[in-house]
Design a protein around this nucleic acid. Sequence first.
DNA 1: AGAATAGTTTATTATTATTAAAGACACTTT
DNA 2: AAAGTGTCTTTAATAATAATAAACTATTCT
Lengths: 301, 301
Amino acid sequence: MARTNTRFIEAYNKALTLCTKATIGEPVPSENALASQLDVSRTIVRSVLTRLHENQIISGTGRNKVVLRQPTPDDRLEGPTRLLSIEELESRFLDWILRMDVPPGTVLNVAQLSKEFSVATHTLQEFLNALSRFSIVTRRPRGGWELNGFTADFAVELSDFRAMLELNSARHLATLPEDHPIWAKLEALEASHHDLLARIDDDYHDFSVLDEKFHETINSVVKNRFVKDFQNIISLVFHYHFQWNKSDERTRNEAAIHEHLAYIDALRSRDTDRAERAARTHLMTSKQTLLDSLKANAHMR
Amino acid sequence: MARTNTRFIEAYNKALTLCTKATIGEPVPSENALASQLDVSRTIVRSVLTRLHENQIISGTGRNKVVLRQPTPDDRLEGPTRLLSIEELESRFLDWILRMDVPPGTVLNVAQLSKEFSVATHTLQEFLNALSRFSIVTRRPRGGWELNGFTADFAVELSDFRAMLELNSARHLATLPEDHPIWAKLEALEASHHDLLARIDDDYHDFSVLDEKFHETINSVVKNRFVKDFQNIISLVFHYHFQWNKSDERTRNEAAIHEHLAYIDALRSRDTDRAERAARTHLMTSKQTLLDSLKANAHMR
DNA sequence: AGAATAGTTTATTATTATTAAAGACACTTT
DNA sequence: AAAGTGTCTTTAATAATAATAAACTATTCT
């Protein structure tokens, strides 16, 4: 009827472990000490101590509490199956939404979904609210959520937005001084690219991770909370779609590596226009890849 | 213990009005007809009819219901004071947050705030969640909300982000064909600017509205949901701050008008670089104005 | 006395239970 | 058949509530 007592149970079990380490008759530490040790509030510590007393694991009151006996495995409390955290939910939900055949315009049902994903309806509400930030879902006037879905329109607009952000980053990056740490990072990335290229026949699959790292590095030179925010959803979406369109994956990835290398070269030339051109070329390819994988996915249905 | 029955009460009172207009003995319309007339579900209509029957305002059952007597003012139901809608809350809350002396890092108290703004805690939660889209507040790990507040950092990053968006729009705009409706709009805007310039001594205050319209027009050429989303918060923040720093308002606005006019000219030249330069000049001024007004506000404290 | 600790109270959030409302289905009447 | 009413199911919004955090007060020990 109210919130779960997961914190209490975890704290209690931790306290049991502490008792196991202690010798019989050893005084129990102060509530404040325990609170900071178990990383919970004193309120929980007090509930834990009470329960320990009830279970005859400690005895005494006030400052005179001592460890009475070693706890057995039976003493451990079984917590309710922990619900998914909002982060865990995020990946599962996006997986569902990006993979499944959910037509745009579908009205989502919070109660049903919360069962399906085994989270509190409240958590799902909050989550949908957060997703609405990226216009993947929208709130309907009198309750309910509508799934805008991952349409071609969405992909185009997301790609364009991404391109705008990254062109800005690239332009900025190309003007950074020689001793800026970014150049060392780019060099390391370049090496990784050459490395992957050497073993592309076997490991072309690894490109997805490298790609994410590459774009993240380039965008890291712009310190802006709004840019950062979007980077998250962008990399998520691109990451997922990478895994879809399996056709020509090896060829596509090899081509992308070459584009990345040219991109790095262009950045290093410090020629803003050249850097911009290289960035634009790669971002256009990327957009096309995303659209292709959308189409490929549509055919699978 | 559950949701408010505001809809029922409003429907009931509307139904009373209908009864007033009806003559005694007149048959009651069908449930479906009433439902669409009162814009509620049949469920509510049925509750309303039941209550009307209990209060001896109508009689009969099934299809044989008739108006029994004229309702009196006493029959009207008193609803609970309607809470603010989320839109109403938005402006009040932003006003509070942008004006008040709330230091960054303050932990917001949902229960207390919901009383203060007389909204349901739930509504406030959702609202804060929406605000977190713009990083004005952030959710804390174990419950609660932290106000990041409107700091100088925030202002700088917002301005930079805005500049990035608008430079992109401006570049795009400068390449649009002669017959695109934007050129007519720009011409109209130019006229408005000249008009305001002629009566600047008296009406310099009107610039705020014109400024908003100007930037909105320029950005309207980019059709992108992510750009649009940000436009909202940006114009809101800039709009509010316009009203703060009263010093030199007349001078500042006059200068801004000249910048706008130069900006329009540059766009019309179809020279992308020139357009970009003009846009950049104005956006830098705008950023500085925002920072100044922040400082001015800080001194007021 | 003053620091540290325990006891008590209050405030606040997360979650459940409950209710209002919407909508679907089935049966009646015209 | 078409329109209406009665019944039932589903869903979202809210109030109540348990869990937690944190403040305040009293006590004990040095």
